[in-house]
Amino acid sequence: MIEAVAIYAGCVLLVVGALFCLLAAVGVIRLPDLLTRMHAASKAGAVGGGMILLAVPLVSLDGSVALRAILGVMFLVLTTPVSAHLLARASLKSTDNVTFTALDELGHKKDPSL
């Protein structure tokens, strides 16, 4: 009984995670510039990928698999913001065109030596 409930919960988590992944991809296509796209990819992507990883132990019901999945999710959650931050920083310093912003407090403070 408990096993069946866990399996159904895992199925729901898998589909919801896949849906978030799809929304991340739609966001990357639809949003107007790099920084707004980064919002979609880093948040929805991390949540979607993490949900799919957590669905695996719910379906297989194995302790060591659960531990590995949790470690994988922790790793994903720790590294996604770091890579998003690095990419945002690198592309802001290499191209000066922030195309679509209402207010830009970084723009006029940009270090002229860079």
Partner: peptide, 22 residues
């Protein structure tokens, strides 16, 4: 821009990870 492509590649690996999980 190159940044957009790198971002999409990053998302692609996360999606591939989800695919392998499925």
């Amino acid at each position: 821009t190159l940044g957009d492509r790198v971002l999409a590649l990053d998302l692609l690996t996360v999606l591939a990870m989800g695919f392998v999980g499925a």
